[in-house]
Amino acid sequence: MSYLPTTFAALGDATRFAIVERLLKDGELAAGELRTVGRLSAPAMSRHLKVLHEAGIVERRVDKQRRLYSVRPEAVRAIGAWTLSHRDFWQGSLERLGAAMGRESGKT
């Protein structure tokens, strides 16, 4: 969880966000196939992928001459867990508390 600020910083760039969305949709892709995302030059794409890789959002493997990129499921799970904040937890719970007590006192 501690690396979430890094995750958000890396995703806070529209191009990188688009790259991640594309990878989520299509699974594993080579850097060359991703370049259509933002009509990027090869060096620009490789810079973005480097940032995403260092933030732990994407992983890569080498297949012959190609570098293949995909999204790390752990990264997305960490984001999902984070979105239940303390405030959301308590406000949601207290709504149910009010309802539960109301039901109880309605009984005689």
Binding site: L84, D88, G92, S93, L94, E95, R96
Partner: peptide
């Protein structure tokens, strides 16, 4: 247990 956790959990 009647209320612990937001709706949907």
């Amino acid at each position: 247990v009647k209320w612990w956790g937001p709706e949907g959990t």
